[in-house]
């Protein structure tokens, strides 16, 4: 069931859908995803975007960095607006892919009601949540997906006390057509999962861990390495859920071999946002990861 990455830098289309020059910071995980994601989605798409860093990255009126039709909407209603756009396309007999593209705050927090409604109706849209684990656009405030211990401007000194929401699991509980987790560090995995999703009717949900150097406290050159470390430590897992069946994607699948796992500390020490974590907290987090992977090794033993 796992998706082997078929696209590589050689056969990836050279056509660009984003104009050169935009307002993203250097090292922005989102800008990698946006550029490569659009290559997979192609021109016959309409995007729905709530307030998020993507809003700013796309440009300020009357200049646009993207070559796609984009509908900017209110924070809480991304999935509902996308529902309306899809209904209009249906009226016109058009196959045009409607893509909702929101951040973690716009999805896990303020937008979860509209997303849940669209999931329950199984709207024929692609919903992409790029999760940079805080409200980065407004200046790094805590969100529902900020990890425990993470320092943000609203969890100063000692970091966030609570665990993050497992949003893809919440989405999966609605039994949608397709759920995929991705990472900005593996853009071609995202690319090929999008290609697959385009061929599926119903709601396709993507949850993408998206490193944000200014928000996470790291050098711009570290974006890819940090995202890879999150996967190699077994903290963030790449998988797909189709017809209720979960399968690990290649970058995570190798961790079924216990020896391939890196210690969580490797990931944490790359970022200043985790500097308030105590040794006990780190140990507890490592234990949770180990428990999760012990279960995975049982579940996926047959694969």
């Amino acid at each position: 069931m796992s998706t082997a990455t078929k696209t590589n830098v050689v056969n990836l289309t050279t056509e660009e859908f984003v104009h050169p020059g935009n307002r993203a910071c250097s090292g922005c995980g989102l800008s990698i995803l946006y550029r490569i994601g659009l290559k997979a989605l192609g021109r016959d798409c309409i995007f729905v975007v709530p307030p998020s860093y993507l809003t700013v990255m796309q440009g300020l009126y009357p200049i646009a960095a993207s070559q796609m039709p984009i509908l900017n909407g209110t924070f809480a209603s991304t999935a509902a607006i996308a529902t309306g756009v899809r209904a209009a396309m249906k009226r016109r007999g058009k196959q045009t892919q409607v893509v909702a593209w929101a951040g973690d705050g716009g999805t896990a927090d303020i937008g979860i009601q509209a997303l849940s409604g669209a999931l329950e109706r199984n709207e024929d849209i692609i919903y992409i949540c790029y999760d940079n684990e805080a409200y980065m656009n407004t200046g790094v405030q805590r969100s529902g997906t900020t990890p425990q211990g993470g320092l943000t401007t609203t969890t100063p000194y000692s970091g966030k006390k609570e665990n993050s929401k497992n949003l893809p699991a919440i989405v999966a509980a609605h039994n949608p057509a397709y759920v995929a987790t991705c990472s900005a560090s593996y853009p071609l995995d995202f690319h090929d999962k999008l290609i697959k999703a385009k061929g599926i009717r119903g709601l396709k949900y993507f949850h993408i861990q998206t490193p944000c150097p200014p928000g996470w406290g790291c050098d711009e050159r570290m974006t890819i390495k940090i995202g890879k470390a999150a996967i190699d430590c077994g903290l963030f897992d790449l998988y797909e859920i189709e017809n209720g069946k979960k399968s690990l994607s290649e970058p995570s699948k190798k961790l079924l071999n216990k020896d391939k796992m890196r210690p969580l500390q490797d990931y944490l020490k790359m970022q200043t946002r985790f500097k308030a974590l105590s040794a006990e907290q780190t140990t507890a987090m490592q234990e949770r990861i180990d428990t999760k992977w012990a279960a995975y090794r049982q579940d996926f033993a047959a694969q």
Binding site: I46, V48, L71, G73, T74, S77, A80, I81, A82, T83, G84, V85, R86, A87, A88, M89, R92, A114
Partner: peptide, 10 residues
């Protein structure tokens, strides 16, 4: 929101 999306798309 649905009406906004639908009307924006014609």
């Amino acid at each position: 929101a649905v009406c906004i999306g639908a009307a924006s798309a014609g």
